[in-house]
Nucleic acid binder design. Sequence first.
DNA 1: AAGGCTAGTGACAGTCGCTGACAGTTGACA
DNA 2: TGTCAACTGTCAGCGACTGTCACTAGCCTT
Lengths: 219, 219
Amino acid sequence: MTARGVTPGLPGLPGLRERKKQRTRDALVRAAIELFTTQGYERTTVDEIVAAVDVSQRTFFRYFAGKEQVVFAVQEMVEARFVESLRGRPPEEPPFEALRRAVLDAWDSIGESIEQFVPVEMYMRAFRMIESTPALLAVQMRRTAETEEEIVRIVAAREGLDPEEDPRPWVAVAAFSGVMQLAGRRWGAGEEISVESMRRLTASLLERLEPSLAGDWRR
Amino acid sequence: MTARGVTPGLPGLPGLRERKKQRTRDALVRAAIELFTTQGYERTTVDEIVAAVDVSQRTFFRYFAGKEQVVFAVQEMVEARFVESLRGRPPEEPPFEALRRAVLDAWDSIGESIEQFVPVEMYMRAFRMIESTPALLAVQMRRTAETEEEIVRIVAAREGLDPEEDPRPWVAVAAFSGVMQLAGRRWGAGEEISVESMRRLTASLLERLEPSLAGDWRR
DNA sequence: AAGGCTAGTGACAGTCGCTGACAGTTGACA
DNA sequence: TGTCAACTGTCAGCGACTGTCACTAGCCTT
């Protein structure tokens, strides 16, 4: 009843079992992204991935619902960061302004969070791979749609609105999200491969949103 | 050397071969949508579809790149109608206004075009199925992204701009498209299952776009 | 310290979507 | 009428994914 094993199992701290799982998961993510970015997504089989980590194929599918899912482990974190940032915006801020600042803030602090997972450069390559692989792009867009719903709820809550009643949160988020997707696409197609360039592009496109909708474009 | 078969093959008119192909294709579309909407998409196998039309599985895949593609045969036509409508807008119209009117016009005239393919009601059911089936939703979004590019080029041309230079066409179309997706989603989730209700919803959301981005929302 | 519990895993077999290769059939056209 | 090319069916096989079951190894109690 004194020492209960090598790991004291402080409450709230993951046990050996949990850590082992996490390690397997991380290893699968890293191996997969490595293989995907070097050989291409479709030319890489699940068998190759599991061989690199030395687990069974069955195990792979216990961690990830599909071959594509493994790519989005990092993306998930980036999105979480944005949501968190949005929640932190002061409530007096106008809704669209809050969205805009939240992304930009998120980009400022995202670098290190990625790094502790995979090298930033690998994340960038993965991002481009998504943009250029139909199967992955499709999943990406679906995920985006799901995140949108959460953002709508946050925006509605900020304004004290019921999202079922008032369509404005939906509309604002839909437009915002459209521009964000555009930013991702353009960044992926461009030369510069830094977080900084992504931030700059995002800022520039969001700024132009209102003028692009208003009246005509001649000065 | 005189009569060359029952069908004289008037130039410009499809020959027997072509008509046969078209019939097979249509039959596959109809059978697939029928099965999908009754049994569900994932619970329907390609084997079942080809059995219903009495062709080989290989033939199915010669017509459609994948099981999902068969669902979008009709959607394609709807999009084409919108693009055509946009091309017909008077050039003085401000860009976003042109987009807005183009969709609404398209909805006005779309009913009969669908009907000659499948019953409108079946189209509606198919649309809902897309919204609720991840695999299909993903394809849908990807297709949308491709159409967007064409729309951007049209808008840029209207304004005499080079889309590589000026981001405004991209931004406007991105926001527009975001709202359109939203309209589709909400319509699919709602009760009313008519083209008219879709048109109404589209109009209402597009109207609210600018106010939803501007300042704060209190009056 | 020992033994039971069970989450996590591997091995294996099977389904389904999809593709390549090859051979047979049938409109198109000279 | 015969040749050609387009379509099609058959078959064999790959890769993604799932269900099942037995086994290993953290974990938890006593």
